[in-house]
Design a protein around this nucleic acid. Structure first.
Lengths: 333, 333
DNA sequence: CTGAAAGCGCTAACAA
DNA sequence: TTGTTAGCGCTTTCAG
């Protein structure tokens, strides 16, 4: 048993046509008689034929795969609940087009180098960039490789260069802030992410742009998107801006940390301080009180990014898309 | 600019040796003079040559990639914080061997079919199975494809057939239970996972096997690894076994739900009821009180699984491995 | 509408 | 130790 894998030749033999004709029905199906097509399809089913991608790829120089490149430092992503959602959505969307997703991590020089070689080697038709920074040396390597790329989340400072699909960070921050104000809060602080990420800077912009109070520098501190970072940031904020009656936190994980800091400081939530998060990740319902937060349509971000990438591969013009967020009201604000 | 990608012929020309010699230094480097090797290496660097995997694959019928197959239904994994850890570790480990990881989701019939075709087509050298059940039709397809496979976490009922790397579920449960008993708890309930998962049944075994009290049926209820499921299960447990003074919960996410149920029922934690979780995922420190839990060495599980798979590809005999867990004491017990 | 034939870039067997 | 050579399985002209 376990005979050799059937090739296109076997299918040709079984269906009584030539290799060329089989190939035609397998692909564009241009100029094939119905009879021939039927015969081929039957033979494919009978033999259990599956095309050899390597051979096809060698001929067409298309691989049928897309690489998802993670640029975030290991430890951060380790805690990041968003990434797996992006992965699954991208995988599903790609699968619908009979393409596959390969994952690469460009966390250090070695990783970046591997990605660069992979791309230069033409091992993937396109790249999906996750949390890539504008100053990431990888960007240059990608550009040099001429492999079409799309980012999930804008690449700060390269918005015009690298097409992207992203959640509306600015709008989401505005939603949260407006809600807080609507709840009668006026002295609102913010725990932001690192400024070199879109979530870091755009959410500050959104936060700042809502009228109804003055925002000064001491009202904003920065965390690193981890829970411990959020806790530390909250303590700092409490020191700088003790009068605050609300905090908008740029991620749920950091918000969980902020909740702990507030608890330790003896401030009740939402009584004395209202807390709003961002992400609507699993931790949002694990905290006490549960987090009022902003849901990002991450699955859609990934599918849209894939759609853009496929369009790019198809040599179409593409335009970046920004998807709306949604306010989820729970107990913390 | 943007000239054609250099081939092995260009390298041969640039280094003044034949294609064959270039190939030799690129691969096994058997029987190559130092001079030739040096010349080739220089030429590779100069030309920026990267081997064409498709061509190599066509010749060797090895792809240099491994597919990670997720069998879990979409909605569960969506909340599962473990999966991304497995992915990253596997990716890193594979990268160290110059191989890549492609991700496929076999959540429904369509997905399973795609995976089966992928494997039958010889598009991957091996498969890494995640949360595959014994009755998954995919298993048969994989077997039929003759693609070497290793599971992350045992495939219940197929332990002898599919090699695996797993955390010590039984031992971890025992650790947690023993700790609870050591804290003076005697009426310990359990919220288990679905019995058709290793974490579901082995953790019950571990829980039950610790002496010091009697375990009856009403002390164990089942959840579905979601937070909502944990909450519901806790309510049920409270009804069946109201006298309990501790709960061992088979996942942190469910434990977070259990905490909420206990809170709603007016039972203090850990005062009246001690709670121990499992996983040590991000939610474990987001809850209030923070969870005492069992840490699974997931990254090691993935690396070990990859190691086993590579050994299998190398035609070696392999033996499944079970890795020790660690008790993390926090505030809930 | 279909068959024949020429490679895609690489490895490995063989010959030198 | 090295060069030569024969394909791996497929797509795609080019004739017919």
């Amino acid at each position: 048993m376990a005979r050799k894998r059937p090739t296109i030749n076997d299918v040709a033999a079984a269906s009584g046509v030539s290799r060329g004709t089989v190939s035609r029905v397998l692909n564009g199906k241009t100029n094939v008689s119905l009879a021939a097509e039927l015969a081929v399809r039957r033979a494919v089913a009978e033999t259990g034929f599956v095309v050899n991608r390597a051979a096809r790829s060698l001929k067409t120089s298309r691989t049928g795969s897309v690489v998802m490149v993670l640029s975030e430092p290991q430890e951060r992503l380790f805690e990041d609940p968003n990434f797996s959602v992006l992965m699954r959505a991208a995988t599903n969307q790609l699968a619908a087009h009979d393409m596959s997703l390969v994952l690469m991590i460009a966390g250090d020089d070695g990783g970046r180098d591997r990605v660069a070689r992979y791309l230069r080697g033409g091992h993937a038709d396109g790249a999906l960039l996750i949390s890539t920074h504008a100053d990431d040396p990888l960007l240059e390597a990608i550009e040099r490789s001429h492999v079409p790329s799309v980012a999930c989340g804008a690449v700060l400072g390269r918005e015009g260069v690298v097409p992207y699909a992203a959640a509306d960070d600015r709008g989401g921050a505005r939603q949260a802030t407006t809600y807080l104000i609507g709840q009668g809060r006026r002295k609102i602080g913010m725990i932001a992410g690192p400024v070199d990420t879109p979530g870091g800077s755009l959410r500050i912009e959104g936060f700042t742009s809502v009228p109804g109070r003055r925002v000064t520098k001491r009202m904003v501190v920065h965390g690193d998107y981890t829970q411990a970072g959020g806790e530390k940031a909250m303590h700092e904020l409490l020191r700088q801006f003790p009068a605050l009656d609300a905090v908008f936190v740029a991620s749920d994980l950091m918000a969980a940390g902020a909740l702990q800091a507030l608890h330790a400081a003896g401030r009740s939530v939402p009584g004395e301080v209202a807390v709003a998060g961002f992400d609507d990740s699993a931790v949002a319902t694990a905290t006490n009180p549960m987090l009022t937060t902003i849901r990002q349509p991450l699955a859609e971000v990934a599918s849209e990014a894939v759609r853009l990438l496929l369009a790019l591969l198809d040599e179409q013009e593409v335009e970046s898309v920004i998807l709306p967020t949604e306010l989820i009201v729970r107990d913390s604000a």
